[in-house]
Amino acid sequence: MNLVVVSGGTSDPSSTRMLADRITARVLDRAAASGLELTTAVIELRPLAAELASAQVTGFAPPAVAAAIATLAEADALIVATPVYKAGVSGLVKSFFDVVDQDLLIAVPTVLAATAGTARHALVADEQLRSLFAYLRALTVPTSVFAAGEDWGGSGLQDRVDRAAHELVVLLAADVRSAMRDAGTRYNRVFGGAAEGADEVEFDSDLMRLATGGSAVAPPVRPV
């Protein structure tokens, strides 16, 4: 199974990447203990910055961004880590997920993580990242991991890392993603997108009947 890590940190080393790595290490430990084999791919967003700016304007992914999206499409589990700037998710991280197909991450177990200079930003992961990934219909784990500068000295951070890793591995081990996707539930897909199943066309629909000369369904009765 594939674990994909997206880091929006911009320095080297960045505390955002360090946090992502810490979570990754715990996930790999716990996965191994559960008998799961995980391969890891890391998407660093900094090298994509110029292409992402261009993609904001053109609406399509240039080559390096497209490669990153292809990596993301293979994710069985995801860790997303963003720095907090001006009380919000990094623009780089938002720009990247802005050009990702909205159906790419359906039911993918995801750990959300954020770093900041002050603990006052502690809710950015829950209030901003979580709503973004709710829109993408990812399966975010209950524990998000936030690290301000002062957290790196204490033990609470590692507890949260461990809990988030545990939650992710539980979802992975139960293969919740496949169970949700295969349960006969239909998710709308953008035709031709990067998500799996994006080339499948549903012919048994009102629109397809209309496309082939049929009638639209009867209008709802208007109250008099």
Binding site: G59, F60, F191, G192, A211, T212, G213
Partner: peptide
């Protein structure tokens, strides 16, 4: 990007045009 429109073109045996200019050809 709309399969229903392509389906309608195909159903009637009409032509299909892809204005192709703003995105990579694979789209």
């Amino acid at each position: 990007r709309t399969p229903e429109i392509a389906e309608q073109a195909a159903f009637y045996g009409d032509g299909f045009f892809a204005n192709h200019i703003f995105w990579p050809s694979e789209h």
